[in-house]
């Protein structure tokens, strides 16, 4: 499991600046991020090297933030890497709610972050296909 922080942002200039500056000042490194947005607000989802520290520091600065865990899997950083995972999950009848990915600095691997409707089932089918799940400590040390 990987810890993901979700940050509420109003859809206005400067909001991302505020959040990223807080993280920067605390020496937090962002590994990956994605934004889901509506007309007037967005949810910034981020994976960082030290999620607990980041959560604390954001809260202290009155940022609306929540922490939860998402699935992380390792794939080969080459064409078709994500397709393999999507197929396994589809065959297992697991629905993907959102997905994003990031490359690692070494080993020719990429990490994929997944939010699915049935996590237990997802872990089961991924394991039986010999897909390696990624833990937070590996993300922290990317």
């Amino acid at each position: 499991m990987i810890k993901q922080l979700s940050v509420f942002l109003e859809n206005e200039p400067g909001r991302l600046v505020k959040v990223t500056r807080i993280l920067e000042d605390a020496g937090i490194d962002i590994r990956a991020l994605t934004v889901a947005e509506t007309a007037d607000f967005g949810i910034l989802r981020i994976i960082v090297d030290d999620p607990d520290k980041a959560h604390g520091i954001l809260k202290e600065n009155n940022v609306a933030v929540a922490s939860d865990s998402v699935l992380g899997v390792e794939v080969d950083d080459k064409p078709g890497g994500l397709r393999v995972i999507a197929e396994i999950l589809a065959e297992g009848e697991v629905n993907i709610e959102y997905v994003y990915a990031f490359a690692t600095r070494s080993r020719g691997k990429a990490f994929i972050v997944l939010r699915v409707d049935d996590r237990e089932r997802a872990v089961e089918v991924l394991n039986s296909s010999n897909i390696r799940l990624v833990e937070q400590n590996e993300v922290s040390g990317v």
Binding site: Q4, S6, V7, F8, A36, E37, T38, F41, G42, I43, R45, K59, A64, V65, A66, D68, V70, E97, R115
Partner: peptide, 15 residues
């Protein structure tokens, strides 16, 4: 104002 308790990673919860 949203409270911390309602923040979710899913946009649809807030909508």
């Amino acid at each position: 104002e949203v409270t911390e308790d309602v923040i979710s990673d899913r946009v649809r919860d807030l909508m």
